[in-house]
Write a protein that binds this DNA or RNA. Sequence first.
DNA 1: GTTATTTATTAATCTACCTTAATTTTTTTT
DNA 2: AAAAAAAATTAAGGTAGATTAATAAATAAC
Lengths: 191, 191
Amino acid sequence: MPFANLLKNIQKHVNLNAEEEAYLLSLFSEKAVDKKEMLLHEGQPCHYFYFVYKGALRSYCLDKQGKESTIMFALQNWWITDMFCFLNDKPAIMFIEALQDSVVLQIHKKSLDNLLLKYPKFEKWFRVLMQNAYTREQLRVIDNLTLSAEEKYDKFLAKYPLIVNEITQKQLASYLGITPEFLSVIRKNKL
Amino acid sequence: MPFANLLKNIQKHVNLNAEEEAYLLSLFSEKAVDKKEMLLHEGQPCHYFYFVYKGALRSYCLDKQGKESTIMFALQNWWITDMFCFLNDKPAIMFIEALQDSVVLQIHKKSLDNLLLKYPKFEKWFRVLMQNAYTREQLRVIDNLTLSAEEKYDKFLAKYPLIVNEITQKQLASYLGITPEFLSVIRKNKL
DNA sequence: GTTATTTATTAATCTACCTTAATTTTTTTT
DNA sequence: AAAAAAAATTAAGGTAGATTAATAAATAAC
């Protein structure tokens, strides 16, 4: 019942009657993504906003030297997209890949626009999502400015204990902004 | 006419009738802040969201070693607060200080909550503010992960040419996450 | 307009983290 | 289950940027 989780997630913020609920769900479609498959590729249009029903995803971008930087990880019940490009109809600057065999529920940008126009009560839901995303990113900026590599690692473990099991050390290092070699040293020093 | 700018800013996103406009404006009050005066102090309740009518502000936080990290600068027509603490009614983790003699228009958290309840059309305005703030912070995270100190400096100049005139080198360095000494070297190398 | 404070400059030394590269372990593919 | 590919470990050497400290310049306070 993939849609039950989605509904529960949205109903945290908005009370829905049967009609609204039906309309909302009609806008989402289910999509399976195999491990290592790309849900979004840099340069492509980013038309969808994804709800993770099952599995784990990662978004990242590449700099000119080909170095990966992980933007975020998304486990079950998280939302993910290249938000800037999604909102502004720009070609993606990120990749989104499945870390495990996953199932997402996707909504098209146009459908989301229609939803917000037709039923403005969904504005609140999206507003709260954006609030949380903003304050989370701001916290991350502060951590990047003030913490050492080891402190960032410790904080990540404390904050996202479930993510660590789903990802490689290389991916974690690229989230923290350090090399996998150095993360290996940090981990060794803990033992 | 401090409120004209404020109205124009909000009306970019929401069409208002006379009643809504009057109610909105009734929630804001004007406040002058002298240069170097603190609008918010770490540990204090953060009850207000500020619109900069005139002048320039800066938010920053202090780590345990007393090192400053600038979170953001806000010039005319920008909004500023310690958003996480404002939204969640937590004691502030930031300071907000006036860089110049300034005038802000402030709205209390409770007033904003009431506004959004009474006139849900303002949800869209706040949603777009949060969207923009989120994608801006995400860009900053990516820049922090991928750029050298000099590249971050160049990008800041290109993106915020007006801010540079209002701030000290020390403040800019603390935004970029480098020491003022090193920023001095970077600047010298440009000549 | 002097004095006191803060900010900026410069240079020497230092260090957290990177780079490279070789080896081992784990995962994936067939 | 063998072979191939990817990830993790370890260590030597290197560098971007920090730290310290002393001097100069600019702001602010009186």
